[in-house]
Structures are given as C-alpha cells and as structure tokens.
Amino acid sequence: MSDPKRIPAIEMAGVSFSFGEETVLQGVSLTVNAGDFVGIIGPNGGGKTTLLRLALGVLKPSQGTVRLLGDAPEKSRIRAGYIPQETSSNKWFPISVIDVTLMGLLSRRSMFRPYTGDDRDKAAAILKELNLSHLENRSIGELSGGQRQKVLLARALVSEPQILFLDEPTASIDTMGQDEIYEYMRKINASGTTVVLVTHNVGAVSSYIRSVACVNRRLFYHPDGMLDDETIAATFGCPVDIIAHGLPHRVYHAHER
C-alpha cells in the first residue's frame, strides 16, 4: 500500500452541486494535503456545509469528482471523524454521554454485534482526556452547549480518524470554550490528523489554520493561509472586518502578498 501521507486527504475536481434549480456550488476544485489544517470560511448559505457533505459522500455532486483519502467517499468516510452542526442531532434523544461517545466506534464494529468492553474502555479514555469523565452517565440533553460539543468531539476522535471534519463546532460556545476546542484541534493536527474546519467566524480561526478555502458558490483556495481583501470581498460580497476583536491571536496577513 502506498504511503497514506502522500495521498491528498481531499481531492475535488470541477465539482458542482445544485438543489433543484438553485446552484449551491459551481466549478469547485480543491486539493487538501494530508496533515493540513484547513479552514473553510464564507457567508451563511454560501455552501460550506454542502462542500463538507460532498467530501463525506453524504451528497453526490451534480458534476465533477470527489475523492476522500484517495478513495470514493462512500468507502473511505469510515476513516473520517465528523462533528456535525449542533442542530443535526436529536437533542432530546434519551442517551448518555458514554453511549454517544461509543457511537464513534460504530464504523469499527460490524453490524449485528454489540460494542465490546474494549470499546467502552476506549470511549471512557477519550472522555477522560477531554475532562468529561464526570459527565459519563449524564444524559446528553442535560449538558450545556459547550459540553455537548466536546462530547461530539470525543465521539469523532474515539475512532482515531485520519481526517476530522468540523461543521461550525463553536457556534453555541463562549470564547473560552472555543479556544479550548481550537487548541485541542491544534493538538490533533500536530499528531498528523488532517483537520477541516467549517466556520463563518473568520477571525476566531485565523491563528490555528494553515490554509483557507473561501466558499460562496465558488471556491477560492489559499494554501498558505493568507487572505486578501479582494478574496474576502469576493467571498462575502462585501469587505468584512477580519480583525478578531479582543482576541490575543490575530489574524490575516493583509493584502501585501
């Protein structure tokens, strides 16, 4: 088998996607190298989540090809970790924190078989690492937004994924909690996992990401992580303030590239 480090984590070529009449993404080509930390930014409704779902094979492109970890997404996505948007899961569902975490090992166990004791140990270990052990038997619905998001992080990480997708992971979290999650992302990325982070919050991610993809129907990719005002303006439709107010870590290299 070839070295997994050499195979791009994501390869998209000429990808377009439409919901009925409405074109969400058009002519998107993107290569994300293994080990990268890419931020996908853009306005709400610009197609960020769609891009992510295409990469995971949840949606099929109307045109173009998508490869994830060198294979068709339907095959390779079990090696990916995924933290969906807060709104996608059934918050009132009766399930404990440890059982949500165990769900991350679903792809490691064949159907018709229950989780093993080993699985439970793994789940407990990752919860401990994220300082969530005291919540193990709590019901997911009783947690705060930040705690719930960390549990979903644990669920994504327990299977030791090669690539981690996060869709607006900090939408309902205060700044402190956000920094904690971003710091953890940095740690995961340093250990070799590719991280793909979707966010509409341009400022907050700037000191963590290595490359940026701006998505608003079309995609502008910046492998060096630098953004200029023109791209920002093209992506968001108007110039936006890219300085992160009050945060110690700033921000984009301005447009002298």
Binding site: R53, L56, G57, V58, R77, I78, A80, Y82, P84, S88, S89, N90, F93, I95, V100, M103, G104, L106, S107, R155
Partner: peptide, 10 residues
C-alpha cells in the same frame, strides 16, 4: 440519534 453520523459510519 444522528442519522447523518450513522450514514458516515457505514
């Protein structure tokens, strides 16, 4: 609990 996550998990 989470249909999309289940789908991705195979």
């Amino acid at each position: 609990y989470d249909e999309e996550f289940a789908l991705i998990s195979g």
